[in-house]
Design a protein around this nucleic acid. Sequence first.
DNA 1: TAATTTAACTAACAATTGTTAGTTTACTGT
DNA 2: ACAGTAAACTAACAATTGTTAGTTAAATTA
Lengths: 189, 189
Amino acid sequence: MKIETRKQQIINAAATLFKEKGYSAVTMRDIAKSMGIKASSLYNHISSKQDILTTIIISLAEEFTNGMDVIKTSQIDSIEKLKQIISLHISITTSNTFGMSSLNSDWMHLEERLDYYLKLRDDYEENFRCIIINGIKNKEIIDVNPEVMLFSILSTLRSLYLWIPKKEDLKQEELVENLSQVLISGVQK
Amino acid sequence: MKIETRKQQIINAAATLFKEKGYSAVTMRDIAKSMGIKASSLYNHISSKQDILTTIIISLAEEFTNGMDVIKTSQIDSIEKLKQIISLHISITTSNTFGMSSLNSDWMHLEERLDYYLKLRDDYEENFRCIIINGIKNKEIIDVNPEVMLFSILSTLRSLYLWIPKKEDLKQEELVENLSQVLISGVQK
DNA sequence: TAATTTAACTAACAATTGTTAGTTTACTGT
DNA sequence: ACAGTAAACTAACAATTGTTAGTTAAATTA
């Protein structure tokens, strides 16, 4: 029983290249070369280039959906839910910075599964929005345009993949703490 | 004296497509078709596909550099400088959401001008970092890892191009106000 | 050992890519 | 009317693309 299937190795190699140059600029020959084999050999393990991208993106999107499902139904206050969301993003991103690049930048190249992806993303955003709006109702969160808050926090969380690899010295829990403070309490003294 | 040169029209058409699918996935024939002409006709006005991308990205990057140069030397406190940076991003992004997409997602496909772009970007980040660090020294800004604050704010500002076109009802000054509040004071009541 | 599976290979394909050369058309200023 | 220029066109190119077919070598299972 192998720890990592050949297919998974291909997907990891591909994700690494996708992060560097984007899905469209990476050729099957590039992926093969990075593994020391020929492009045609890839097709023993995957069915198409599309298949690679779809696998990368959908599996990550579903991780986020599952994480959000837990958070939204848990009995904690709104601010705590925000912290859990921050923690979810840091956790998923830390364990797959390359895949997160495709999720953020190459989703438009999904074909059959594009609609499914968009539904997952919309639902995720809607759940996030509800948490914020509930926080405003409860007087836990300031009464500012919730769209601005949603966008601001989510933009930072979605960009983590660009930044986490460059700051490997920063421990995960420490990052959760610091980022929660900045996103929730701001930067002003 | 034409208001918009043919070259600028091509660049605008290209930027629109680049935002949809990314630089690599857009062909010269796509750009030409969106203008109702043939691909070869484009070469009466631009010298290469690269040339289009370079023009889009470098002109925007220089706008940011110029804006930052004004802000960093002005005699205002650190929090006010942050607000000016937020305003700068909103202003540039509002007037060119398509180009901002290339700046954020396609810069790695620059060739001869890649190093120049990276220098502008590094310098911009360094100036931003200095403003934050100075704010911490002055006790205007909380004493948290400045890299986390820099990353958090900059990620939001760099993602504005994705979001501003979807919220056209929100006026620019209103957005500056709301976003400043969220980024500087946080969301917690 | 024999049979099966896994995973590599070579060779080739049809389509698409950015770009060039050479030509034609229509406007602009003299 | 004429010359010059701006901006379109057709046709073609060499290179690269994702993918398939058919084959071979090594590892695994019976």
